[in-house]
Amino acid sequence: MSEIADFLRARYTERRAIAEAASPGPWRPNAEHDEVIAVDGITVAEGFALSGRQLRATVDHIAANDPADVIADCDSKLAIVDMHPPEEIPEHSRRSWQTFTTQCASESWKVYSDAENRVEYPCRTLRLLAQPFVGHPDHKGEEWMA
């Protein structure tokens, strides 16, 4: 595997575990939009410390990120990571980079004439998936920026 793929798998696995441990979804705001209610009727969060529009928007945001949706999001992103394995560059390649991927070869602006159907690894897709985690201590910063 690769460093960026392992990093992304770890982040999505962490988020998925948090969602699995949460109150069951789907979550919804109550009629006043000042509480988030789980499918079992339990109050998940109260927005009482906020005021008016911010309270309603915060409650709606929490409800929109219920565990089932977060789990589905993590699973789909893990599948995307798995679609982008690094591959070794053949010895006859003239490029200095060591790995490539064929999944994102349609990004023609990155395809080189002597490496048809290959793009440098990590590809832009994986670097974009890593951007939300830029503050994580294991993120490689500029190296992984899209």
Score class of each variant (00 low, 15 high):
42 I>M: 10
71 I>L: 09
143 E>T: 11
42 I>P: 00
53 R>W: 07
119 V>T: 04
54 Q>R: 13
35 E>A: 14
126 L>C: 02
60 D>W: 05
13 T>Y: 05
13 T>I: 12
24 P>D: 02
52 G>S: 10
5 A>L: 07
67 P>T: 01
83 M>F: 10
69 D>L: 15
111 V>W: 08
91 E>S: 00
52 G>I: 13
62 I>S: 01
61 H>K: 14
120 E>S: 07
126 L>F: 10
5 A>G: 11
20 E>P: 01
139 H>A: 11
57 A>I: 05
54 Q>V: 05
52 G>N: 07
99 T>V: 08
54 Q>T: 04
30 N>C: 11
112 Y>R: 00
101 T>D: 10
120 E>V: 08
141 G>R: 11
110 K>I: 11
22 A>L: 06
96 S>I: 02
61 H>P: 01
79 A>H: 02
63 A>V: 05
99 T>C: 07
57 A>F: 07
6 D>P: 08
32 E>S: 05
7 F>G: 13
130 A>R: 01
138 D>V: 08
83 M>H: 03
39 V>N: 00
23 S>M: 04
36 V>R: 14
73 D>V: 02
45 A>K: 15
138 D>Q: 09
43 T>Y: 03
20 E>V: 01
57 A>T: 00
64 A>V: 05
18 I>E: 14
93 S>T: 05
37 I>G: 07
106 S>E: 12
49 A>D: 12
3 E>C: 06
145 M>L: 12
22 A>D: 06
139 H>P: 15
85 P>A: 12
17 A>K: 13
93 S>N: 03
71 I>N: 02
85 P>M: 06
47 G>D: 00
22 A>T: 01
112 Y>I: 09
116 E>R: 15
74 C>R: 09
142 E>G: 09
72 A>P: 04
96 S>D: 07
55 L>K: 09
21 A>E: 08
139 H>F: 07
17 A>C: 13
120 E>P: 13
38 A>C: 08
76 S>R: 15
8 L>R: 06
86 P>E: 13
117 N>F: 10
113 S>W: 06
143 E>Y: 06
4 I>K: 10
26 P>V: 01
6 D>G: 14
90 P>M: 03
68 A>P: 00
2 S>L: 01
83 M>K: 06
135 G>K: 15
59 V>H: 02
10 A>L: 14
50 L>N: 00
145 M>P: 01
56 R>S: 09
107 E>Q: 13
5 A>M: 03
43 T>E: 04
37 I>F: 13
10 A>C: 08
71 I>W: 04
123 C>I: 10
66 D>A: 02
81 V>F: 10
19 A>W: 13
